[in-house]
Amino acid sequence: MRAFALFLALFTFWVCLSGQTDSTFLMGIGLACCGFTAWLCTRLEIVGDEGQPTRGLLSFLVYIPWLVWQVVLANIDVVRRVWSPTSTSIDPRLFELETELRHPVARTLYANSITLTPGTVTVRCEEGHFIVHALTEGAERALLGGDMEQRIRQMEEASR
């Protein structure tokens, strides 16, 4: 099942890159290559929950637009601070962020989401907490509020 999902993803990727949908020969070669790759990955035993977290996919698709919106909001804030005529508008700090996320994919997604929103950067990932650098107190408070973690935890639970 996971191997088939991998095969579908590979083939979609291949079709998008080549765009040669009218050539039967090229499509056949693509199908064969993607099938072979999926088979190899199964043999290497790298097809699994960590490589293909397929079960949380639906909630992930809901999460993406929310994340993009957060990125846009955070960007506007950083852009304002860059252009502010006084240099007093930033107040950087390092702080510890507790997290209850255990699943490696969920932890990666959380750390990457934090880094993706300007104003906060994940500096270290340790067991049970991240060390985060925030540009302003507001950015720190937004993370400590836990809204983002809540959304990812729902995804983690949905994928169980």
Partner: peptide, 21 residues
Amino acid sequence: GVLRFPDFYSRLHPAGTGDTL
């Protein structure tokens, strides 16, 4: 932003705006 901000860590943030938005 990379030029104006004071240190390495804070410069990561405006660089991030370029990467994302």
